[in-house]
Design a protein around this nucleic acid. Structure first.
Lengths: 151, 151
DNA sequence: GTTGAAACAGAAGTGCT
DNA sequence: AGCACTTCTGTTTCAAC
């Protein structure tokens, strides 16, 4: 792990994950550091790509997506689903994973008919297994530095 | 779907998902709207909870997490894993889903030993199925309003 | 690391079309 | 609804400590 991430950086990262638009002065107040010190640390974290960027968290339901589903795709010898995944706006996450399921993706749909259409399209690349999300316990939990085992 | 989301709002949401710290004036330039008009629309979108918040995108690898895994948990008659999930910093997403897998979660681990420890803890709540993420095709793709079928 | 000042950029409020 | 203008807040950079 990056040894340059101290407790101040850790706290700053935590605050920025909760609210990316928090002012550096306000962060300084909460971590007991001056505003220029906070700005400098954030600049370092951005340069080191610890902070990849800042994103607005948009509520899919407010846009009309009533359904979130997790779809597992078992591809037959590496069919080129990557291009479809990239071009399909309903697929918002897609990971290639170990095991018999080649890919796991998170999909948004307005209704079950919409979901059915997406599944049909994905079936061109392999067999799918779909699980509709009932409740979201946590999504995008704040990432903290791992606790050291032997420190 | 929310009928008040027009093309301007759609474009603003897209820009803010790419960069939450983009200034309202810069957004205005790109959507051909004045800064106050953009500010007012963003305020509306925030009030309507279309925009839930703004989050820094932190790179797990930069913090020392070398492994991302998708773990499926088949719980036996609703064991109380929710509390564990909330308290475990390595579990960053957790959804209850339909089907035999009661829950699907995304987990960060520093190494395979670390992952093994998390799996062991989760096994207290049911049987687990773990898939290690090999590649991330897309993560947190920009959400766009659904295309209308009959419009 | 800190404070303080100056220059600049961005956000919010006002009035008008 | 929209824009132009002003004001206030926040950020950045600089100095000196």
């Amino acid at each position: 792990m990056n040894p340059k991430i101290d407790n101040f950086d850790q706290k700053i990262l935590s605050l920025l994950q909760q609210d990316a638009r928090m002012s550096h002065a306000e962060i300084g107040r909460q971590v007991h550091l001056s505003q220029p010190a906070v700005s400098e640390r954030i600049k370092r974290l951005e340069a080191a790509e610890v902070i990849r960027g800042y994103r607005a968290d948009v509520n899919p339901k407010a846009l009309g997506y009533q359904i979130t589903a997790m779809i597992r795709l078992s591809t037959q010898q590496g069919r080129p689903y990557a291009q479809y995944v990239a071009s399909c706006p309903e697929i918002i996450d897609c990971y290639t994973v170990t095991g018999e399921d080649g890919a796991v993706m998170r999909v948004l749909a307005t209704d079950v008919e919409h979901l059915q259409r997406i599944i049909n399209e994905l079936n061109a690349f392999g067999s799918t297994s779909t699980a509709i999300v009932l409740t979201t316990h946590v999504a995008g939990k704040t990432i903290t530095a791992p606790v050291q085992e032997g420190s």
